Amino acid sequence: MASVNMADVKRLRELTAAGMMDCKKALEEAGGDIEKAVDILRVKGAKDVGKREARTASNGLIAVKQDGESLAALLELNCETDFVAKGERFQELAAKVVAHVLASRPSDVPTLLESDLDGKSVKEHLDEANAALGEKIEVRRFAVLDGGHIVAYMHKTDPQLPPAVGVLVQLDSPNTEVGKDIAQHAAAMAPRYLNPNSVPADVVEKERTVFEQMTREEGKPEAAIAKIVDGRVNGWYKDFTLLEQAFVKDNKKTVGKYAAEAGVKVLAFVRYKVGQA
């Protein structure tokens, strides 16, 4: 086999996002011809797509697409390494898929994967990227907000990487400044639900059970347990529901109060962070 230099290996990796050893082997097999090496990696990648199904895709990016002020989609597209995440091909794929989500409004991820995008299913597009980039590529989740006034905020946790956190905030009336403030708050404070009424009953019951057990183990009087548990549940709401959280720019008021004072109502929000539930 022909010997190859590291400059060509690096160039091939930049072109394909394949691993260093795969690039080196492909160049050796191609006799140093970079174009032939690219083809070799594509063939190898296509053969290895199935082998990657069990691997973990915990890196990636959050992509957003807006259509005017009242319609927006958010998407989490995953890969295995940050090297692929910052690559042009991966980012172009994310932009294409999130635009398709906004246009087609699929009901769930399986429906999205089977839907037609430029004559191929979305799954076929992902498989092609999987083969070309040599990593497991998958859509983890997406959301569409429609109506009102929607503000998007994207946050990079590393300036060298694409956005890892994305937030959409839906207000009942236009106020971009307030929407951005609340979106930035949500990005930083990671609320799980909009308000106490939006928390599923089973989640509340689970937390209440934990707090009751905790209170009993602390030896609190039986007559006081119910009241203490209620207080702890209310404290949980302040930690995990957006409108009950203390506003980061003024912790003397809640996010809900900040919005009300500005004359707007928060109808909904979506917050995604790569790799986070």
Rank of each mutant, 00 (worst) to 15 (best):
M1P: 12
V4Y: 11
V4N: 06
N5E: 12
D8S: 14
V9G: 01
R13V: 11
E14Y: 07
M21H: 04
K24I: 11
E28K: 13
E28T: 14
G32Y: 01
G32S: 09
V38C: 06
I40H: 01
R42Y: 02
V43C: 04
V43Q: 13
A46G: 04
V49W: 06
K51E: 14
R52K: 15
E53F: 11
R55C: 07
R55I: 10
N59D: 13
Q66M: 13
A73Q: 00
L77P: 00
C79F: 03
E80C: 06
T81V: 08
F83T: 10
F83N: 09
R89K: 12
F90G: 02
Q91I: 01
A95W: 02
V98G: 02
V101M: 01
L102K: 01
S104K: 15
D108P: 04
D108C: 10
L112W: 04
S115Y: 01
L117I: 10
G119C: 10
S121M: 06
H125Y: 03
H125W: 13
H125E: 05
E128W: 06
E128F: 06
A132S: 15
V139Q: 05
F142G: 00
F142P: 00
F142K: 00
V144M: 03
I150S: 04
H155G: 03
T157K: 15
P159A: 09
Q160P: 01
L161D: 07
P162Y: 08
P162I: 10
G166R: 03
G166Q: 07
V167D: 10
L168K: 01
V169D: 03
V169R: 01
P174D: 10
N175Q: 07
T176W: 02
D181K: 07
H185P: 04
A188S: 15
M189V: 05
P191A: 09
Y193L: 06
L194E: 08
S198G: 03
S198R: 05
P200T: 12
A201R: 10
V203L: 03
V203R: 05
V203A: 12
V204Q: 13
V204A: 11
E205C: 06
E212L: 12
E212P: 02
Q213T: 13
T215V: 15
R216W: 00
E218F: 01
E222H: 09
A223M: 14
A224E: 14
A224I: 15
A226K: 15
K227R: 15
D230V: 07
V233G: 02
G235L: 05
W236I: 04
Y237S: 05
D239S: 11
F240I: 15
L243P: 00
L243G: 03
Q245A: 11
K249N: 13
Y258M: 14
A259K: 07
A260T: 14
E261N: 09
G263E: 11
G263M: 11
V264N: 03
V264M: 05
V266I: 14
L267Q: 13
L267M: 12
V270E: 13
Y272P: 04
V274S: 02
Q276Y: 12
